[in-house]
């Protein structure tokens, strides 16, 4: 049985803009991945527990309400606390470019802004995902 990339697509916080998250879930599945879509209103704890129970290879976070600087690093921190250091964390949404560096320093592997071709995101994941 071929191994499948398992990715959690999560909407942290109270933001309801899920067009991008749903669209990407579909695109990831089309690329052969198994996508766990969490739905809205996820706390960092919920996202990390989900990643843990699902043995996720990737956690994708989407935020359009300006809370990325709080939520994304928090998710990384909790993942590490659970020993999930090798999980790839990627983010997208309305994120000013000046925040990219800080997020990457906090351990977010990549940020994809508005207008990024979805093929670029899929390729990035396929190239950088862990072996298990």
């Amino acid at each position: 049985m071929a191994k499948k990339i398992k990715i959690i697509v999560a909407k942290p916080g109270l933001d309801g803009h899920d067009r991008g998250a749903k669209l990407l879930s579909r695109i990831f599945a089309e690329a052969g991945m198994e996508v766990v879509y969490t739905g809205l209103r996820q706390t960092p704890e919920m996202i990390v527990e989900t990643a843990l129970q699902e043995d996720a290879d990737v956690v994708g976070l989407s935020s359009l309400s300006g809370v990325h600087n709080y939520f994304f690093p928090k998710v990384v921190e909790l993942l590490r606390a659970k020993g999930l250091d090798d999980v790839l964390v990627v983010g997208g949404g309305i994120i000013p470019r000046e925040d990219y560096e800080g997020l990457q320093k906090a351990g977010v592997n990549a940020i994809f802004g508005p207008g990024t071709p979805t093929t670029e995101i899929v390729e990035y994941i396929q190239k950088n995902v862990r072996e298990r």
Partner: peptide
């Protein structure tokens, strides 16, 4: 803000950051 729209007070845990 989103906490108000979702019916949470500003000091609710789900309001963190929002």
């Amino acid at each position: 803000d989103l906490p108000t729209q979702a019916g949470y007070d500003s000091d609710h845990p789900l309001s963190m950051g929002e």
